Simulated scan of single mutants.
Amino acid sequence: MLPIVLYNGRRHWTAPTDLADLIDTAPAGLDAYRPSLRYLLIDAGAYADADLAAQRNLAAALFRLENSRGPEPVREVLTALTDWLSDPEQAELRRSFVLWLRQAFLRTRLPTVQFPELGNMEEIRIMLTDRVLDRTQQWKQEGLQEGLHSERRMLRRLIRRRFGEGVEVQSTPLLERIVQPEVFEDLGEALFDCADDRAWLARLTAAVGGNG
């Protein structure tokens, strides 16, 4: 049995990869009974696009799509996939990719765009060339908003675990005013440095003031 965590969040994975690291040190004589389970972490966002592009690998192609910030890398990946999955025996895999692209990926990245029924990856690639080329800025902006939403949601979960639901409720309207991803990175580190909830709220308020 090989435990695997496949993670595709915007922020890099920072949690321990061994269950034992999440459990306090046991009293003397009980260490042998402390649970330990190490898992293999695959953090899709930690791979550089150039490294992924050099691999003729379907998983690498999927990671490139999920990490993309504009239509150009998406078209590049789709061109490669159209070639790689051209054999008749790959028909089921082609259908699965097309379904995911149409029902999940494109609707998430461009929720305001009305897409026609797209039957294959070549149609999707052509559609991106013809109809989305002039929407690059919208794509980037919506991708940024999606990333900010994920950052806020993750930080709220960490606040709740660290200081409780009440502090999370107090923090939420302040987090909504932050629009710079790097501020969330700083706050993620500061959260665990603050001794108590008052110190955290003061740190968050200062970050919001600087963000404005």
Rank of each mutant, 00 (worst) to 15 (best):
Q138D: 15
G212Y: 14
F163W: 00
L155S: 02
S36T: 15
D196H: 00
W100G: 00
E89Y: 12
D49A: 06
P73I: 10
I124K: 00
E92Q: 11
L187E: 04
M1N: 11
E165I: 05
L19F: 08
L106G: 02
P111C: 14
P173T: 06
G209W: 10
P116C: 08
V98C: 05
Q170D: 07
S68D: 11
L99K: 07
M1I: 13
Q145Y: 11
F115K: 03
E76M: 10
G164H: 01
L191N: 07
R107L: 08
T136S: 13
P73A: 07
D43N: 01
R157K: 14
N211W: 07
A44D: 07
E123T: 06
G209T: 11
L85S: 03
Y7V: 01
E142Q: 15
Y39K: 01
G70N: 12
R131W: 13
P88F: 09
V167F: 00
I4G: 03
L155D: 04
D186I: 14
E151Y: 12
D18C: 04
E182Y: 08
I126Y: 11
G9F: 01
H149S: 15
N67Y: 08
D51L: 04
S150K: 13
D87Q: 15
E189N: 08
E168T: 07
L191F: 05
D24C: 05
S150W: 12
A59H: 12
A20R: 10
P27E: 10
L110G: 05
Y7L: 00
F184I: 04
V98A: 03
R107N: 13
A195F: 04
I159P: 00
D186S: 13
R203P: 03
V74S: 02
A46P: 02
I42V: 08
Q103S: 05
F97W: 01
A202V: 10
R94S: 09
Q138H: 11
L110V: 10
R109D: 11
R153M: 15
M154P: 08
D186A: 12
Y33V: 14
A80Q: 14
D193V: 06
V169H: 06
G45W: 02
P16N: 09
E117I: 09
A104S: 14
N57C: 09
A199E: 10
P73Q: 08
V5A: 03
E66H: 10
S96V: 06
A48F: 07
R94K: 14
A104P: 12
R198I: 09
L2Y: 14
W13F: 05
V132T: 09
Y7K: 01
P16F: 08
P173H: 05
R56F: 15
R153Q: 15
L204V: 03
W100L: 00
W84M: 10
M127V: 13
I178F: 01
A20G: 08
E182R: 08
M121L: 10
E122G: 02
R162N: 06
R11Y: 07
L128N: 03
